[in-house]
Design a protein around this nucleic acid. Structure first.
Lengths: 148, 148
DNA sequence: CTAGGTGCAAATCATTTGCCGGGGC
DNA sequence: GCCCCGGCAAATGATTTGCACCTAG
């Protein structure tokens, strides 16, 4: 794992290492409880409070970022901090990173007199997996009943 | 107020009318409790539970929209449903609507194989009011102490 | 009469916090 | 020795829900 620069006196404890490693490993964007479950496999006695505390710690030092989607009631975390653009499926509620250059036109600087330091884009729709499912179920249905 | 089309049997009660009217009137993006306080001036005996219920109702029928910013722990509401682009000040935590055309390059359609129906953009930074305050306090400070 | 709506209070759920013992430097 | 840290459990705060009554159609 890359060496992180931490303020003097603060340590990258085993708990923090594991949380960070798990977040960097997975491509889903787990919420705090899911992180807790992942980390518990490595550190069975870790507590949920510690996970919350350390997610906050890692976030405040810029090592991870939090995503708030409005489809669910809790915060999701991303081990990468350079992903500002996400896609949320309104059917399965999975959160994807966007790969395409679609939103690259947004530039930091100023806007309406405000100083823009950062941005988050969230696209909402139906993901390719759910689209596939939907199509095949439609095809099945029309195949059975036909057009009358 | 414009007539809303509601599913059969559902009514636009006085409580809902007032909530909607207040949300359309204000330009801040109040959270549920702030809506409650606004509405209580008109309907003193309304309960917070009713406000939540009706915000959910209005949202699910597309008359208002919810914004989740990550700077605070609660949901904010917008009486307009065509505002997808917001700016959050990280100092005062106010939420502004964006007027400029900055993010217009985002287009609905498809992206990475997903079907995009909607989007939300949130820019984060320091708003013009806070910038002004910051500048004048800096000026004051350097004026008093000078450069040494 | 029936379904939908409301006020109220209790419940729920995510997240935060206080406390205390333990370990690193 | 001091400070940071983690586990645990209790507290907090936003939101939801169950219930009993009310009202429009």
């Amino acid at each position: 794992m890359s060496q992180l620069n931490l303020p003097k006196g603060r340590r990258l404890t085993r708990q923090r290492q594991v949380i960070l490693a798990e977040l960097r490993k997975v491509h889903s964007h787990p919420n705090a409880f899911e992180v807790y479950e992942l980390v518990k496999k490595k550190i069975p006695r870790i507590s949920l409070g510690t996970v919350y505390r350390n997610l906050g710690f890692l976030k405040s030092h810029g090592h991870i970022q939090a995503l708030s989607c409005d489809c669910c009631d809790c915060e999701h975390f991303d081990g990468q901090t350079d992903h500002n653009e996400h896609f949320t499926c309104k059917l399965c509620q999975r959160v994807y990173d966007l790969k395409g250059p679609l939103t690259k036109k947004i530039c930091l600087g100023s806007q309406d007199g405000h100083q823009i330091d950062d941005y988050q884009v969230n696209l909402i729709g139906i993901c390719h997996q759910c689209l596939k499912k939907k199509k095949s179920s439609l095809a099945r249905k029309s195949g059975l009943t036909g057009k009358r």
